[in-house]
Simulated assay, not measured.
Amino acid sequence: MDRLAGQIGGNPSQGKLHPMVEPFDQRQIDVGDGHILHVEQSGNPEGIPVIVLHGGPGGGCSPFMRRFFDPKYYRAVLFDQRGCGRSRPHAEVAANTTQHLIADIELIRRRLGLGRAILFGGSWGATLAVAYAEAHPEAVLALVLRGVFLGRRSELDWFYGGGVARFFPDRWAEFQRPIPVAERDDMIMAYHRRLFGGDRGQEIRYSLPWIMWENALAGLEISGSGHAPPDYARAFARLENHYFAHGCFLDEGQLLRDRHLIEHLPAFIVQGRYDMVCPPQTAWELAEGWEKAELRMVPASGHALSEPRIATELVRVMDGLRDAAQRGGRVA
Score class of each variant (00 low, 15 high):
D25E: 15
I29D: 01
I36D: 00
H18L: 10
V31Y: 11
G9L: 12
L17I: 03
G32S: 09
H35R: 04
V21R: 12
R27Y: 00
R3K: 07
Q7S: 10
L37A: 00
I8K: 08
Q7T: 12
M1Y: 07
G34F: 12
P12G: 12
P19Q: 04
D30Q: 09
Q26R: 14
F24Q: 03
S13F: 15
D25V: 11
E22A: 13
Q14H: 12
D33H: 15
V39Q: 02
V39A: 06
V31S: 07
D33K: 11
L37K: 01
S13K: 10
R27H: 05
H18A: 03
I8C: 04
P23E: 02
L4Q: 08
Q26C: 10
Q7L: 13
F24K: 06
H18F: 15
G34E: 12
V31Q: 08
A5E: 06
G34Q: 11
Q26L: 09
N11A: 14
Q26D: 05
R3C: 04
H38G: 07
V21F: 08
V21D: 04
P19E: 09
G32C: 09
I8M: 08
D2Q: 08
L37R: 00
G6S: 13
I29V: 13
L37I: 01
H18K: 07
D2C: 03
M1H: 07
R27M: 13
I8G: 07
L37C: 01
L4H: 01
D2E: 11
Q14R: 14
L17K: 14
H38A: 11
D33G: 08
L17Q: 11
H35G: 02
V39I: 02
Q28K: 12
P19Y: 09
M1K: 03
P12N: 13
H18I: 06
V21K: 06
P12M: 09
P23Y: 00
D25Q: 15
V39T: 00
D2S: 06
Q26K: 15
